[in-house]
């Protein structure tokens, strides 16, 4: 019952003024699969994701989707943000409701909000203000909000990197379940290699800026069956690290041109 779409990037390049950030990115995220994009910081991962979802027009190249979407899908390409992007003056329920109100009746909004809060373990927190929640709980709201619109493609920009290590592990497990159940196409950006091998069915390694596709790995193993100490996944993690290590070291010493 996969209702994901195929997301196709064709020769996407982007420059911020004279700074070339992305160079000829051609990728396809297959329906229902999790595509993980890794690369050193500043290589253009966020830029790429913003282009994928139509928040940023690339300097050249194109992005398109293929496939059918469910009737109840309100926002085919839906983001989960690194900084959660919750509206601080709305409680949890109204943060989720905000993205539904313009499309659904009041009752339908309440119904969907109840459903996704239950799904993400937030049922008791509908009245809470964002400031009252831990980082992990805030990102659960971010996930709930994204699932509430029944997306055909989830675009996640380092959704766990603002969290501490333990929270990250806990939430990663929940992501696996939720992404598996939602059966959407997912583009997941991270610079965390254990996250990459845990979630990725297609793992795209970008070079340092200007970001190009260096290598693509496929992991043909269901998400739910993966364990943290699977030797194949450990090997893959080491391979990935070997590939990006030198780039990461150089990128880390590069001058930062603008706030990301």
């Amino acid at each position: 019952m996969s209702h994901g779409v195929r997301l196709i990037l064709d020769e996407v390049s982007h420059a911020w003024k004279t700074l070339r950030v992305l160079d000829g990115i051609t990728l396809t995220a297959e329906p229902g699969e999790v595509m993980v994009v890794i690369g050193p910081s500043g290589c253009g991962k966020s830029t790429l994701l913003n282009i994928m979802g139509g928040l940023l027009a690339p300097t050249s190249g194109s992005v398109r989707t293929e496939g059918a979407i469910a009737d109840d899908c309100l926002n085919p390409l839906t983001y989960v943000f690194q900084d959660f992007s919750l509206v601080p003056w709305r409680n949890v329920r109204d943060n989720v409701g905000l993205v539904l109100r313009h499309k659904l009746t009041r009752d339908a909004v309440a119904e969907r909000v109840r459903e996704v809060l239950a799904l993400t373990g937030l049922s008791d927190f509908g009245d809470a203000w964002p400031k009252e929640l831990s980082g992990g709980m805030r990102q659960r709201v971010g996930i709930a909000r994204a699932l509430a619109v029944r997306p055909a493609c989830l675009l996640m920009d380092e959704p766990l990197s603002a969290l501490d290590a333990q929270t990250r592990d806990l939430l990663l497990d929940e992501f696996v379940t939720l992404i598996g159940r939602a059966a959407t196409t997912t583009v997941y950006i991270t610079h965390n290699l254990p996250e990459a091998v845990r979630l990725g069915q297609q793992i795209v390694v970008l070079s340092r800026r200007p970001g190009r596709v260096r290598e693509i790995f496929r992991v043909n193993r269901p998400l739910t069956g993966r364990s943290a100490d699977d030797p194949d996944l450990k090997n893959l993690e080491h391979t990935l690290w070997r590939i990006i290590r030198d780039d990461a070291a150089v990128a880390e010493r590069e001058r930062i041109d603008a706030p990301a």
Binding site: G53, L55, L74, N75, L77, T78, Y79, F81, D83, S85, V87, L98, V99, H102, R145, V149
Partner: peptide, 13 residues
């Protein structure tokens, strides 16, 4: 600006 982008990304009017 991130909140405004969030609104746009969910297709809010």
């Amino acid at each position: 600006r991130g909140l405004i982008r969030m609104g746009q990304s969910f297709g809010l009017p």
